[in-house]
């Protein structure tokens, strides 16, 4: 799965948003993002952290091209393939897990690839089942498999592990790392869980409250395998001291 390098995969992704404003049903204007500029390093994991309601999800939606109503530009290679893991699994309840994955899979993605991927994320036995028969944890695994089946140039993860118990969430984080390391791709994850961010990030991007912009970009170059509890706590203490506003409420 990790032997092909496509042209798009190494090109950088540039995000420049001058302004993104929501207009409410009653006509009120709410500026979610102002003067945000961010370069994503290819094949690295960028984690966005910010206070809740700061516009993280809005930012992901703009990057994914789901919301074109903003001033600025998103510079990404043409014909980029996208994988998106939402806060909820968002599987189609009337399609089996296998059909859900097949529906979005990359053109060259064979049935065998699908079986291998399902095996890797632990949903092999769930492939013929409908999503409603799955627990939230299993549905998240299926959604993870779906996101990777597109063989994405850009993988977007919007708080993919919220409302899971800590053990399940931790297993899924390691699973994500395993699958992602097998085929590294440019990834952006949104979270408000500081320890999760410190475990997964190559680049940690701290965002300001609404209207949001980048406060700081921290590069964490300790290899992920070596990030045990002690190191994560040390990183956490250091960042809390330097950016109290971003870590206060966590």
């Amino acid at each position: 799965m990790n032997d092909t390098q496509r042209a798009g995969a190494t090109s950088p992704f540039k995000i420049r948003i001058e302004e993104k404003t929501h207009i409410g049903a009653d006509g009120t204007r709410l500026t979610a993002i102002r003067d945000l500029s961010l370069d994503l390093k290819p094949e690295s994991m960028t984690v966005l952290m910010g206070p809740s309601g700061c516009g993280k999800t809005t930012l992901l939606r703009v990057v994914a091209g789901l919301d074109g109503d903003f001033i600025g530009e998103i510079d990404m290679p043409p014909h980029s393939r996208l994988g998106f893991m939402f806060q909820e699994p968002r599987l189609l309840p009337w399609r089996t897990v296998r059909q859900n994955i097949e529906l979005v899979a990359a053109p060259g993605f064979s049935g065998e690839d699908l079986d291998n991927l399902a095996e890797a994320v632990g949903v092999a036995e769930m492939l013929p089942r409908y999503p409603q028969e799955l627990s939230l944890g299993l549905a998240r695994r299926a959604a993870l498999a779906r996101a990777f089946s597109t063989e994405p140039d850009l993988l977007l993860l919007d708080e993919p592990f919220v409302s899971l118990d800590e053990r399940t969430a931790d297993r899924l984080r390691r699973l994500l790392l395993d699958v992602w390391s097998a085929r590294p791709t440019t990834a952006v994850m949104v979270t408000h869980n500081a320890r999760e961010a410190l475990l997964l990030a190559d680049q940690l991007v701290l965002l300001a409250p609404r209207p949001t912009h980048v406060v700081a970009v921290e590069t964490i170059d300790i290899p992920r395998a070596e990030r045990d509890t002690k190191i994560i706590e040390a990183l956490h203490a250091d960042l809390s001291r330097r950016f109290p506003a971003n870590f206060a409420e966590l």
């Binding site: 939606r61 994914a64 091209g65 789901l66 996208l82 998106f84 909820e88 529906l103 977007l156």
Partner: peptide
């Protein structure tokens, strides 16, 4: 609307 977003994020064709 959530499933609609999913379909657009994964670039499904209009017919699909």
């Amino acid at each position: 609307p959530g499933l609609d977003e999913m379909a657009r994020a994964y670039r499904l064709t209009p017919w699909s």
